[in-house]
Design a protein around this nucleic acid. Structure first.
Length: 249
DNA sequence: AGCACA
């Protein structure tokens, strides 16, 4: 039988990073509210260092959430990609580059001139563009209740009717097969079996030789796959947090 | 659509 490309929508997964990049956000929402809400929704995945969003035309509808750990970011992507937020499904990926707050902590921070790709050309009337970058560090992040399984309405179908064919990561609907990513290349099927077979309904692990780092894990039904997914989401194998989603059928 | 921290 044939199987869909393992890779989601043909776009590569950016390398794991502690910052997530979110787009397809509802542009009508005011920035402050947007950031507050993002903070609320994402704080259960771990401590958030900063939430950034901007109002400029080039950056509308997008935001960055900087976590303290890459593991949190990874879990947040797996759990929240496609989540309806102000009536639109969030599209989430790892950020392409390291956030300044993180670089500052690293000691690798280099002031912006080096990092700018292209400067703005003259001839444009300069407009005030306010974007604020509130840092709501301690204020709003509550410690997470323990367990990620509590994401509410993922069951609502994110893309009802006509969908653009190549979304970066169109989340597959819940089903009995899990798609596991971000595994160390040397991960043995047996190791995965040990992990997943603790969950009821486990059937088998399938790994794709041609594509190291991923695996399919089949359960008897979707309730059982869901339990396993939430139980093992972000579980680290040799430092790599597993990223588990439903497989595309 | 669009990956920044002015």
């Amino acid at each position: 039988m044939e199987m869909q490309e393992a890779n989601q929508g043909g776009s590569e997964l950016s390398s794991p990073n502690q910052t997530i990049y979110i787009n397809n956000l509802n542009e009508k929402v005011k920035l402050e509210e947007l950031k507050k809400s993002l903070n609320l929704v994402f704080s259960k995945f771990g401590n958030i260092l900063e939430v950034l969003a901007f109002k400029t035309l080039k950056h509308k509808g997008q935001a960055w959430v900087v976590f303290e750990n890459a593991e949190s970011a990874s879990t947040a992507i797996a759990e929240m990609n496609g989540y309806l937020f102000y009536d639109k499904p969030m599209r989430i990926q790892f950020a392409k580059t390291k956030s300044d707050v993180v670089a500052k902590a690293d000691g690798t921070f280099v002031p912006r001139e080096k990092r700018k790709r292209h400067e703005e050309k003259g001839g444009k009337k300069k407009k005030e563009q306010h974007h604020d970058s509130t840092q709501m560090g301690m204020a709003m992040n509550s410690a997470y209740p323990g367990g990620y399984g509590v994401t509410p309405p993922l069951s609502q179908v994110p893309y009802p009717g006509g969908v653009k064919p190549n979304l970066p990561e169109a989340p597959a609907p819940p089903n009995n097969i899990l798609f596991v990513q971000n595994l160390p290349h040397e991960t043995a099927p047996m190791m995965l079996q040990v992990l997943f077979s603790q969950y009821p309904g486990f059937k088998e692990v399938r790994m794709v030789e041609a594509k190291p780092g991923i695996a399919f894990v089949e359960f008897a039904d979707e309730m059982q796959s869901t339990v396993a997914m939430h139980g093992l989401q972000g579980f680290k194998i040799e430092q790599n947090p597993m990223l588990i989603t439903y497989a595309k059928k």
